[in-house]
Deep mutational scan, measured.
Amino acid sequence: MEVRTIKVFTTVDNINLHTQVVDMSMTYGQQFGPTYLDGADVTKIKPHNSHEGKTFYVLPNDDTLRVEAFEYYHTTDPSFLGRYMSALNHTKKWKYPQVNGLTSIKWADNNCYLATALLTLQQIELKFNPPALQDAYYRARAGEAANFCALILAYCNKTVGELGDVRETMSYLFQHANLDSCKRVLNVVCKTCGQQQTTLKGVEAVMYMGTLSYEQFKKGVQIPCTCGKQATKYLVQQESPFVMMSAPPAQYELKHGTFTCASEYTGNYQCGHYKHITSKETLYCIDGALLTKSSEYKGPITDVFYKENSYTTTIK
């Protein structure tokens, strides 16, 4: 009895394709271990004539594949690729409408935090270190965002349907971005203890939790000093293409032309909904596939993004 075979390709990165001759009487799992086709788990399936010449994702289970996976995804987590594939199996079914010149995501599976993050990423200057993220990001900007969303979920250790947080998501993504040249110098002034300067680099240099107003941050924000008295913390120097200011959701007025974009969060910790506000020729609110415009805006804002380049204080 002759062994019926077909020729397929296996890959971990969709760049390096490895030619395989597979036995049609055995499952993919018996031949390769966990195997995925377009995100779908085909591990328990036997090869079919229609699979001839198709590319299958496999887990990096030998040295060659491990090197290829690390170079593309910059992670050695053995569960990463499987999590990416199972997320992709959902995100490829989502709709990605162009809204006001940006790629958004039609609401499904509690994905409003991903839509808000995706919209924000198209408006701030950011370059990702893992080629996987950078490639998928370019495709997302062009309207094909399924891979990018699935990668975000995998890097953030999230599953489809789980509630997510924009600030946490951005923080994970910033860790995989090139923020080497970003720098922030802060000064804390206390009447009792004097003053202390701190220099922050990388992710810490672009994120701040405690106030939404970048102007206020430049002037000074009140913080408790270690001595128990009130101290003032203010920005001395900022070198970065953008800054992200966050605070627990509270009524906040966004003035046209003073910011790049913002995240609105309605609801409580267990259950809520994100919308995205962007400042173009007027203010726009993007909620999944829905767009509304207004000249002014007041609502429960939790993150505001500002364009920056270089700032030095005039406070002496």
Rank of each mutant, 00 (worst) to 15 (best):
K307R: 14
V236I: 08
L212N: 01
L200C: 10
E125W: 01
K7R: 08
C182Q: 04
H18L: 07
L126V: 14
R83Y: 06
S171L: 12
C182K: 02
K219D: 08
G210Q: 02
A146C: 10
T260L: 15
F32I: 10
Y113H: 06
Y214P: 03
A247Q: 06
Q197N: 12
G299E: 01
E296T: 07
Y214I: 11
T292G: 06
T55S: 13
M209T: 11
V236Q: 08
T120P: 03
A262S: 01
A108D: 08
R4K: 14
T159L: 14
T27S: 07
F305C: 05
K106F: 06
C112V: 03
A231R: 05
F259H: 02
N157F: 10
L173R: 02
K92F: 06
A132N: 04
R141L: 13
K95W: 08
N16F: 07
Q30R: 10
K307H: 15
Y72K: 10
K54G: 10
P224L: 14
H273T: 00
K275G: 00
G29A: 07
T302V: 06
Y234Q: 08
R4V: 13
T198D: 08
Y28A: 05
N110S: 03
P130I: 06
M207P: 03
V21C: 15
S50A: 10
Y72H: 14
T226C: 09
Y234P: 00
V206F: 02
A108S: 10
T258K: 09
A289E: 11
T302R: 00
G39V: 09
Q197W: 08
R184L: 01
G82R: 11
T10V: 11
K95P: 05
Y138V: 13
A69R: 06
E71K: 11
D180R: 09
F217Y: 06
G82S: 14
K127I: 09
D135K: 10
P78N: 10
N309E: 05
E308K: 06
T103Y: 11
T5Y: 13
G228Q: 01
V42R: 07
A150F: 03
K92W: 05
V58I: 10
R141T: 12
K293F: 09
K54H: 15
K127C: 13
S310C: 10
M244N: 01
C156M: 12
Y138S: 15
Q175L: 08
D23I: 11
V221M: 12
R141C: 15
F148Y: 03
G33P: 05
W107R: 03
P78I: 12
R141D: 05
R141Q: 10
G143V: 04
H51N: 10
L126K: 04
K44N: 14
K7H: 14
Q31M: 15
C285H: 06
Q31N: 14
T19P: 12
K95S: 14
C271D: 07
P34I: 15
R139A: 13
E125I: 05
E2P: 11
A140Q: 02
L133A: 03
A87S: 08
C149M: 12
S310K: 08
N111M: 03
G202F: 03
T292L: 08
Q216P: 03
E264P: 00
V304Y: 02
Q123T: 05
P131D: 02
T258F: 07
Q230M: 10
V21S: 12
H74K: 08
C156T: 14
Y311R: 07
T27N: 12
N187I: 13
V21F: 14
Y96N: 01
V21Q: 10
A289S: 11
T313A: 10
G194N: 05
E162Y: 02
I286T: 00
G272C: 00
A142H: 14
L119Y: 04
A177S: 09
T91A: 06
T55G: 07
C225T: 01
P130H: 02
T292Q: 13
K307W: 06
A177Y: 01
Q237L: 13
K233A: 13
F128C: 02
E239P: 01
Q196T: 14
I315G: 08
S295Y: 08
G257F: 01
Y36S: 06
A132K: 06
G39I: 08
S86I: 12
S246C: 06
M24Y: 09
A262W: 00
T198Q: 12
Y57I: 11
D13N: 04
A250E: 09
Y137A: 08
L283R: 01
F174A: 03
E204T: 07
